[in-house]
Write a protein that binds this DNA or RNA. Structure first.
Length: 436
RNA sequence: GCCCCCAUCGUCUAGCCUGGUCUAGGACACGAGCUUUUCAAGCUUGCGACACCGGUUCGAAUCCGGUUGGGGGCGCCA
């Protein structure tokens, strides 16, 4: 039976690297019809916080990692202390000479060999490793001891963790051997580095999964991006669901090399998922942002209209937040011009053209995409001008911006009243400009 | 300082195990062009890498050794 585990410590948020380690453990368990276990390493009472635990659990659920069993090391102290006593009695460990009460493992002199599933054989001479504390003077177990005891007790078959644990492994193997426990298989996956090369840290950008969620990344895109860091499904495939990864994942295909986190590619993947996401589902994610920005009141909104709006924007944004950021002109009473848009609007006096547009728009019975576009096309034909001469100032007048979704769709969705009102305002603005 | 891991385009990677099909493929980013309407979407296209030195071999990105470079660890943190 394949049993893997992810063992976060609630002394911080779930970060990118942890999430990827969790993903590979989850993938490997699911791919092999095994069990995936979540173990909370909360032995450090001073640093462990409930809020971190909540944050980690929420992030894991958001990413869609379900666990079959859940353990807390803080509830298993009796087990650690019993086994430490046993080692003491066997003479494999000793009590600290300083009288602190700590229990320390005597490091046997030998060559320890790890047979890593990813790196192959790695050898360590224990002469370079000092005796290891098993139980601290406050009676709590050290990481290496609790980790070994639990991995053995919980029958973990494959320990899949970050590269940074390679040097812990010989210490742990010595503990396994002292305890007489069978060794699990080890697989050390490469670390994720920041774009600048070093460790991921707050200084080099966001590290917590929840931060990326708040930035407007989708769970599916996050999992997709993470799975491509240190692993590849082959066949030049860039878009892959969790389910498909389960089918294709093999621990032997995991890279040896550290991978740099790259926001651009992450955004590109997020854009892909955004575009392809059901607009109604996406609306549910965007809705809180709309409320937060004051675009809509609690329950007083037209859901179908909002879904149309989502459809307009989701093609061209990288994050959920950008939908909210760029759609403000739909909800505002008056237009706020960007400097470029205002310049474009004042560039040429289009008062007459705007008056014709407004009158034609006002007389339309059906104010949809095609009728709006037809009216526009007829006008530019009659005036014998190129469409772009009028289309950009029109966009500026109606949205206050020079970029955005297709202008006729925008106008149709904005509605006749708002469009005519904004054209009136633009006409007024042009007339005051003339007077100056 | 000691120990360990790693090394293909700027970045993520395919290829490496089982040398020849690799004048090294894809993606992101970047540049150019197209899209009777923008770009922040789409399409086309361009730029761009086997770190270095030696060895093995008829032949090396692929195997071996070294150098250099990068990363990690050496806590009564996890």
């Amino acid at each position: 039976m394949i049993r893997t585990r992810f063992a976060p410590s609630p002394t911080g948020n779930l970060h990118i690297g942890g999430a990827r380690t969790c993903l590979f453990n989850w993938l490997f368990a699911r791919a092999n019809n095994g069990k995936f276990i979540l173990r909370i390493e909360d032995t450090d009472k001073a640093r462990s916080k409930q809020e971190y635990l909540d944050e980690i659990l929420n992030s894991l659920k958001w990413l869609g990692f379900d666990w079959d069993e859940l353990y807390f090391q803080s509830k298993r102290f009796a087990l650690y202390s019993d086994l430490a006593d046993k080692l003491l009695k066997q003479g494999k460990a000793y009590e600290a000479e300083d009288g602190s009460g700590a229990i320390i493992l005597k490091m046997p002199q030998k060559i320890v060999e790890i047979d890593d599933l990813i790196h192959g054989k790695i050898q360590f001479d224990t002469a370079t490793i000092k005796d290891q504390v098993l139980i601290k003077s406050d009676k709590t177990p050290t990481y290496n001891f609790a980790c070994v005891v639990d991995d053995a007790d919980l029958k973990i078959s494959h320990v899949i963790r970050g590269d940074d644990h390679i040097s812990n492994t010989p210490k742990q193997i010595v503990i396994y051997e002292a305890l007489g426990f069978a060794l699990p298989a080890f697989a050390h996956i490469p670390m994720i580095l920041s774009g600048q090369g070093g460790r991921l840290s707050k200084r080099t950008g966001a590290t917590a999964i929840s931060e990326y969620r708040n930035m407007g990344f989708l769970a599916e895109a996050t999992v997709n991006y993470l799975s491509l860091l240190g692993w590849s499904p082959g066949d030049n495939q860039e878009i892959i669901s969790k389910e498909e990864s389960v089918k294709k994942f093999s621990i032997k295909d995991v890279n040896h090399t550290a991978a740099a986190f790259n926001l651009d590619k992450f955004q590109w993947i997020n854009n892909y998922y955004l575009k392809n996401m059901d607009s109604e589902k996406l609306l549910d994610i965007v809705l809180p942002l709309f409320k937060q920005k004051g675009y809509i009141k609690d329950d007083n909104f037209d859901r179908n209209w909002l879904i149309d709006l989502i459809k307009l924007f989701k093609e061209r944004v990288n994050t959920v937040c950008e939908i909210a950021d760029w759609s403000g002109f739909f909800f505002a009473e008056d237009v706020t011009f960007s400097p470029e848009a205002e310049t474009k609007l004042r560039e040429k006096d289009l008062t007459q053209e705007f008056i014709i547009l407004r009158d034609k728009f006002a007389s339309l019975d059906k104010f949809d995409h095609s009728s709006v576009e037809n009216v526009f096309r007829q006008i530019i034909e009659k005036l014998n001008i190129k469409s772009k001469v009028l289309i950009h100032p029109l966009r500026a007048a109606v949205t206050g911006l020079l970029i955005g979704p297709g202008i006729f769709e925008v106008i149709a969705l904005l509605g006749k009243d708002k469009v005519c009102k904004r054209l009136d305002q633009a006409i007024k603005l042009l007339s005051t400009a003339k007077g100056e």
